[in-house]
Design a protein around this nucleic acid. Structure first.
Length: 232
DNA sequence: GCGACAG
DNA sequence: ATCTTGTCGC
């Protein structure tokens, strides 16, 4: 797939923050996908001592059955590269973006939705990983983070499917979503070309027996497999 | 000034 | 996120 909007990745933190503030103005949280036929899950793992990242996007075909869906794994695309950018809270995209984009460029068919392990607009400048890369690649994207970057929420119910809004001051930025009963909830937010409902619904629809949705869960598993192959 | 802080 | 030994449970 092609990159719709380009910009340099090697920005210092002040420049990166300024760019996020510009991108934020162009991120659209409107869902306009009548049918979802293909979903991608994206994730990155590292070998710390080699400063090396392993990025994966797993593609799934979606078959609708009533309220739930079935996912059929189609393809796994991968990339590995040296990491130069440090982890700075709020600037994760500048660390993981280049590796993920190398994977994205190998994909031939446009997914209807991309799911990321990280924040969408639930970010101090509304420009988390899923918002930034969704905008750059001009694709619908949502963020499913395992922990909170920013925002406040009421306690969420214990049952699978329970969810409460996540707020920054008086502005909603996402939801806290219980994807498995009595298991730590996810922090779900729209990235780009997706709204709050689509983010929550597709997160729940694609979650089966683990807390993470299958697309990002498989992508994570594949990054770990790449690392174990690389090590030996 | 002091915590909080996706991965 | 990674590193890292053991432990508990299906």
């Amino acid at each position: 797939m092609s990159v719709a909007r380009d910009h340099p990745w090697d920005l210092n933190p002040a420049e990166a923050i300024h760019l996020q503030q510009e991108i934020k103005k162009e991120v659209r949280i409107k869902w306009n996908n009548p049918s979802v036929r293909m979903i991608g899950g994206a994730d990155v793992s590292y070998i710390q001592r080699w400063n090396r990242a392993f990025a994966v996007i797993c593609l799934f075909e979606v078959s609708q059955t009533d309220n739930s869906v079935e996912l059929h794994h189609l393809d796994t695309y991968t990339a590995s590269m040296k990491i130069t950018y440090p982890y700075i809270p709020g600037l994760l995209t500048f660390r993981e973006g280049p590796a993920l984009e190398t994977v994205w460029e190998q994909i031939e068919d446009t997914p209807d939705l991309l799911m990321f392990d990280g924040a969408g607009i639930a970010h101090p400048r509304r420009c988390g990983l899923a918002a930034h890369l969704g905008w750059r690649w001009n694709v619908s994207a949502i963020g499913c983070a395992k922990s909170r970057l920013t925002g406040k929420a009421e306690e969420v119910g214990l049952e699978k499917g329970d969810h409460v809004p996540l707020w920054d001051k008086k502005t909603q930025i996402g939801h806290v979503v219980r994807t498995r009963t009595r298991v730590k909830p996810l922090y779900v937010s729209p990235g780009h070309k997706a709204d709050f409902s689509a983010a929550v619904e597709w997160t729940l629809r694609t979650t089966t027996k683990y807390k993470m949705p299958e697309p990002t869960r498989l992508a994570d598993k594949e990054t770990k497999r790449l690392i174990s192959e690389f090590r030996q």
